[in-house]
């Protein structure tokens, strides 16, 4: 038997380990001392964090606002950002389940583990609408916790703002009062703007693409009367669209969908029902604060104004 120890065969490997160990001992500084490093999955959450946290937070948004937040890759750059995060904001209720668990696990940052103050799951603070995926026969169970697209509901976002203010205060107790006040202000502005927009809009019936605009019903005088997708995640089929047209023939309404969704189905309804069609963003720009979100609310309401 040939004696061989682990110590001497990988000599350059041992050196490698030593370098890694040394690096570990170096102190790591955050972007700016005293700032809370916040990572938000969507720009709607990012906007709230910027508004409430002000200069005391630096915010990085992971999901590009013009993309479907359901379908992202757990990118290496996400893990690098989460590795240094003090606070991770997610919508929850399954919206990010295709990628966030993998990205968070890969980040090796216990501060953002579920259950820690560094993990903020917005859906946990809300009563969600039922998801249509819960009512269909078969095996749908994506959104068993409810419809996670509450970013289109400023009233629920106001509740999230208050909860987020509290959480920021927990992480920075010396500023808790300040954050609490900012959060209440933010909530007030959201609610007030929602009331104003609702007052300007006549009752509308709408067809949406996915259940991502269902929450408009919660604060605008609108009723969702159909979905372009035959079932969530499945692109519109000719048969389904024809059925929608037959059902809605000789009624009034509009078709609304997210900018990243294909407009073929919406155009079909526009052509056969004479309903106006509009595509809208679902989230504000990545660098937005509250004003960006308020503007987005106006965009949604504006798209439903009768022409």
């Amino acid at each position: 038997m040939q004696p061989m120890s682990w110590i001497h065969f990988p000599s350059n490997f041992a050196r490698w380990l030593a370098i890694a160990a040394l690096l570990l001992l170096l102190p790591f500084s955050h972007p700016t001392a005293g700032e809370l490093n916040v990572v938000a999955t969507t720009s709607s959450l990012g906007a709230l964090a910027r508004e409430i946290g002000g200069d005391h937070v630096s915010v990085r948004v992971l999901a590009p606002p013009d993309r479907d937040a359901h379908y992202l890759d757990a990118r290496p750059s996400f893990m690098a950002a989460l590795r240094r995060a003090d606070l991770l904001l997610e919508m929850g209720a399954g919206l990010e389940e295709g990628w966030l668990p993998a990205a968070a696990r890969g980040a090796a940052n216990p501060a953002i583990n579920i259950g820690r103050p560094g993990r903020f799951i917005a859906a946990d603070f809300l009563h969600l609408r039922r998801s249509i995926t819960m009512d269909e026969p078969g095996m749908g169970h994506v959104h068993a916790e409810g419809n996670p697209h509450f970013n289109s509901d400023p009233l629920r976002m106001a509740e999230v703002a208050v909860a987020l203010g509290e959480r920021l205060g927990e992480l920075m107790p010396e500023r808790a009062e300040h954050f609490g006040a900012r959060a209440r202000q933010t909530a007030d502005r959201l609610e007030q703007h929602a009331r104003e927009l609702a007052a300007q809009l006549p009752e509308r019936r709408i067809v949406v693409y996915h259940e991502d605009l269902d929450y408009l019903e919660e604060w605008l005088p609108v009723t969702v009367v159909g979905y372009l997708e035959p079932s969530p995640g499945v692109p519109p089929t000719a048969r389904h669209l024809q059925r929608l047209v037959d059902e809605l023939q000789n009624t009034e309404g509009s078709v609304l969908h997210a900018s990243f969704q294909p407009d073929r189905g919406a155009r079909f309804l526009e052509r056969h029902l004479g309903w106006p069609r509009a595509d809208v963003p679902l989230d504000p720009p990545a660098d937005a604060a509250l004003d960006g979100y308020l503007e987005l609310m106006s965009t949604w309401a504006g798209a439903l104004q009768p022409q």
């Binding site: 399954g94 389940e97 078969g138 095996m139 749908g140 169970h141 079932s231 969530p232």
Partner: peptide, 28 residues
């Protein structure tokens, strides 16, 4: 594309989804 929301029509004729679904839906 990461596609892990579980949809209704997963069976797609490959297997008897009616048979499998009761146990799988209760996966938590």
């Amino acid at each position: 594309m990461q596609t892990h929301r579980i949809m209704r029509h997963a069976g797609a004729g490959l297997l008897a989804s009616a048979f499998l679904s009761p146990t799988l839906v209760a996966s938590q």
